[in-house]
Amino acid sequence: MTGPLLITASGYWNPLVWLAAFAIILVIVLIIRSSGTKRFKKGTDQTLQFFSGNRPPADNVDPDNLYWGFSRKLERYTAWLRSWHTGIVNDYAFAFAVLIIIIFAALAFGGVL
């Protein structure tokens, strides 16, 4: 009934069982959803994004920008990474030379092959 299993090293995975579970949960979610109220009105303040009761800031955070804070926090690391990606063809060739040296060093010092 369950069909074949996909053996991963520490468990297994059966997409068809997952699909059945998904269908059951979907039905439950739809039942809960249908018991909700219908007070949503278009064009009122209801549709604005919630920003602690204040007007949302229009200057720097775009309402479409889902991950403003997230990418802001990661900026420290991405700025460092972006500084590598200079776009200069000489650096590309240099990276290639470095890769050869890395592989040779690792294989030569880690026992011959």
Binding site: F96, L99, I100, I103, F104, L107, A108, V112, L113
Partner: peptide, 17 residues
């Protein structure tokens, strides 16, 4: 096999990488 093989494989592997 010897160190020469290592040299060859590092050149070939980096080209394919």
């Amino acid at each position: 096999h010897s160190l020469l093989d290592v040299a060859a494989i590092s050149l070939i592997a980096s080209a394919l990488l």
